[in-house]
């Protein structure tokens, strides 16, 4: 076999041109041509410029002036935002969005609406660990709001309260502490943990004034004063106050939570078992005293 190929090669040499410098070539595949980069830097900068934040794509934080005394710190006394990192936040939900949720069947207006039912839609979120304490119902869409609701929010202004009461509804502003909010952001997950429902804490001193104010429809305010204020607001805004007592949905509209209660109809201290569909209630005297309102 080997001799055969050698013979063949010799045979071929007879007809091939003579090997010389003019017809020598590198073997195929041994040399690759270099690609020429396009643009100013031949593509080695990837369009990001040369040096600094531009190249490293680590853009400076807002207000930073590369070592200068920054503008926002240049003047010694600007107290408007003092303690802003400690203040309570109420992420807004407009009345128009609320109406949309009701009309699109995301929220059931035939039952009381509270933070849990708003969070259960999945279209509104709060992060209690970022000091977000619940819904701020804003007045966008107050003029077209026509749903009769029993709603509980965490913050509301006068036009919002007027719009809801004009439509025949009821509004309450209520405070929830961090632990309660953690249970409320995902009630199903909370029940699966097998932990007793926590009791709601009283609002902190700087919030107690708001939540005890009948003009804000606070949950700690005297109900008689609230009904007085309802009439006052109706006269101020010039609408006829619909009578709740004669409403066919009177029971739904008057359903309220206890100041220590988080979920409607469920007492703090109870443990809900979703698997066996039973509720465990403590009977220890000490626990009963602790969870009593």
């Amino acid at each position: 076999m080997g001799s055969n190929t050698a013979e063949k090669a010799l045979q071929m040499l007879k007809f091939l041109p003579r090997v010389c410098l003019a017809n020598l070539k590198p073997s195929p595949g041994s040399r690759t041509s270099k690609k020429r980069g396009r643009g100013q830097h031949g593509g080695d900068k990837h369009g990001a410029g040369n040096k600094g934040s531009g190249q490293r794509q680590n853009y400076m934080r807002l207000g930073y002036e590369t070592g200068n005394n920054p503008f926002y710190l240049r003047f010694p006394h600007e107290p408007y935002y003092q303690g802003h990192h400690l203040r309570r936040e109420y992420p807004p939900l407009s009345m128009l969005d609320l109406l949309k949720l009701i009309e699109m069947n995301r929220l059931d207006a035939s039952k009381p609406i509270d933070l849990v039912s708003i969070l259960n839609t999945g279209l509104y979120k709060i992060f209690p660990d970022q000091r977000q304490y619940g819904v701020n119902l804003t007045d966008e869409g107050a003029d077209v709001f026509n749903a009769k609701v029993n709603i509980e929010v965490q913050w509301a202004t006068e036009p919002v309260i007027a719009a809801i009461e004009r439509a025949g509804g009821v509004i309450t502003t209520a405070y929830y502490d961090q632990h309660s909010l953690q249970a409320m952001i995902n009630a199903k997950k909370f029940f699966e943990r097998g932990v007793p429902i926590p009791r709601r804490m009283m609002p902190p001193p700087d919030a107690i004034e708001y939540y005890a104010d009948p003009t804000k429809r606070g949950y700690l305010a005297d109900p008689e004063k609230i009904s007085e204020e309802r009439l006052v607001l109706a006269q101020k805004y010039g609408y006829e106050l619909p009578q709740i007592e004669k409403d066919p949905e009177y029971e739904m509209l008057t359903e309220r939570k206890d100041p220590r209660q988080i979920f409607y109809g469920l007492h703090p201290g109870w443990v809900v078992n979703l698997k066996d569909k039973v509720i465990l209630k403590p009977q220890d005297e000490e626990l009963e005293r602790y969870y009593a309102s």
């Binding site: 469920l266 039973v278 509720i279 403590p282």
Partner: peptide, 14 residues
């Protein structure tokens, strides 16, 4: 001490 209850009226709230 605890009590296990199965009340359909209460379960509606859950």
């Amino acid at each position: 001490k605890y009590e296990t209850t199965k009340n359909p009226e209460e379960w509606k709230y859950v």
